[in-house]
Design a protein around this nucleic acid. Sequence first.
RNA 1: GUGAGUGUAGCUCAGUCGGUAGAGCACCGGGUUGUGGCCCCGGUGGUCGAGGGUUCAAGUCCCUUCACUCACCCCA
Length: 423
Amino acid sequence: MIKLVKGFKDILPEEAGLWQHVEMLVRELLEDFGFAELRIPILEQTELFARSIGTSTDIVEKEMYTFIDRSGESLTLRPEATASVVRAYIEHRLYAKNPVRKLYTIGPMFRRERPQKGRYRQFYQINAEVFGLHDPRADAELILLLMTFMGRLELSGIVLHINSLGCPACRPRFKDALKSFLTGRSEQLCSDCLRRRDKNPLRIFDCKVPACKETMQDAPSILEHLCNTCQSHFEIVKTSLDRFQMPYQVNPRLVRGLDYYTRTTFEVLAETLGAQDAVAGGGRYDGLVKALGGPDQPGIGFAIGIDRLMALLAGRAQDFEKRPHIFIAAIGEQAQNIAFQWVQDLRRQRVRAEMDFENRSLKSQMRRADKLGVTYALIVGDRELDDGAAVLRNMTTKEQEKVSLQNVVTLVANRIRAEQSIH
RNA sequence: GUGAGUGUAGCUCAGUCGGUAGAGCACCGGGUUGUGGCCCCGGUGGUCGAGGGUUCAAGUCCCUUCACUCACCCCA
């Protein structure tokens, strides 16, 4: 039997309704906040990711699905969306009319990591990016948008962490301070951290090895090394969040894996998710647009992991399954033919009608109606055909009424429409 | 890439000291004329992950291998 590729998954019909609902909610909200959808391809030139994400990151070093196309060029299945959005912003000169653009995109990303709970090789993200705004209130607004979305989904047990990574002016100074702190403490660090020390010392803050954690307790904090501009930027982000009563936790150890981040970074953590507990994350990337050959415009964005969101919403999937409205139980060939016509007519009026083509016993057809969860069953057999009226049964109240054969479709359609407008 | 755990029916799982495969749920049918859920009865469904070995005999013991899961790493 041919099976799924490792780390990939199918989204089954039972869950697809919830996915649709979540996507609808987020589109609505993003558009209210002035975002427009940008649809971008899944494949890009490898160099785009190498240059934006950073060549020494794990993603670029060992996690990308890269292959040589028949023409000889190196292509990569996108491991994240920001690079592509920036590429499109530059390539189509989206900054020309107005440098301020708010864009969102939804779709799959690919990273070849070892799969585990909440981590797949193809995973889905909702991405929002804002270009052209330096103001820290833009950072706060984006975070508020993200948290509003979480709120609308009625998620509990989630925490917002924020931090500032500084800018090209102050981050090097901090790195130096960190390096000199680490000098002479190599004994206390694990082998991974020793490797990180030269490459990307900020990552040591993330290490879970107890000895490293202990050592890093006394390490200098980035927040104490921010330049004045970065410091006041971060202050305004915080006071803006305060102003809207948005709770957050300042986490100086929040270091993000992609090289392009500057100043504000944030993550939404969910305690019930296990080891992969980040549902969403993002930050500011002021140098990226220019680095990729565009104008010197700042950027800020976030990504929401839809798969992880779904894990948090598990159990609510059944509320969004589209059940049929009515099941027509027809006994005998003549009745089946009439029922077949009714089903088609009802669907034309946007009523979800189902029937059985196998001429089963009424009992088994009723059982089927019950399983489908319909509110109405329509019964028609020789008796009803002679009588000129079918029997409409309300499955919850068990009330039955006669409906003349001529009026069946309109009556049923009206009845169901009326019920929907109540809910 | 590294480590640990788990593989028996569609799903969740039992299976004793090695003796020829089981339950619950699901599915199909029945419980007197043409009416669902609850209850009762019956039925379909298995290469016991795969390959090899030991044995009169292997789901069970041994070896190999594959898959899945969780964790490390990293991140959504």
